[in-house]
């Protein structure tokens, strides 16, 4: 069947409490017709992966502003793979350009820098989150 909205799990990993960006992204994706499972603050990679499994998510989006993306970004990918999930991971927030390369090499599907516009966010998520029609 076509037309099923993509289902995206959004979360913030780690302790940092800046959720303005994540909330805006949640609304942007909703307004682009997607279903957003919003987990908000203080999630762990393992917890988010378990949710992605139960929600049959088409993508996982994580936002980070605490300079720990190089630890937690790859940890998110690993946590999903450990459950046997191929779910693509999108990382957003304060990520310097050099680190974006490193993250991609670690299996992150897309990296959205601090200045990403709404259309860029939607396009990136659409590109990676293809609801499979099995």
């Amino acid at each position: 069947m076509t037309g099923a909205p993509p289902r995206i799990v959004l979360a913030k990993l780690g302790f940092d409490g800046h959720d303005r960006g994540l909330k805006i992204v949640a609304r942007i994706l909703r307004d682009a017709g997607m279903e957003v499972v919003y987990l908000g603050l203080r999630q762990t990679p393992e917890g988010v992966a378990a949710v992605a499994e139960q929600e049959d998510a088409d993508a996982v989006g994580i936002s980070m502003h605490n300079a720990s993306h190089l630890t937690l970004g790859p940890a998110m990918v690993e946590a999903l793979r450990a459950l046997g999930l191929a779910t693509p991971v999108v990382v957003g927030g304060i990520v310097p350009a050099d680190d974006a390369e490193t993250l991609r090499a670690a299996g992150v599907a897309a990296v959205l820098g601090p200045g990403a516009s709404a259309p860029e966010v939607v396009a990136a998520v659409r590109r990676v989150a293809v609801p499979d029609d099995g």
């Binding site: 780690g14 302790f15 940092d16 203080r42 605490n66 720990s68 190089l70 937690l72 940890a75």
Partner: peptide, 17 residues
């Protein structure tokens, strides 16, 4: 951040922060 959230440095949630 771990200090601000009341977690010790050896708390697993503090990893990387």
């Amino acid at each position: 951040m771990p200090t601000l959230m009341g977690a010790d440095s050896d708390d697993p949630r503090s990893r990387g922060e």
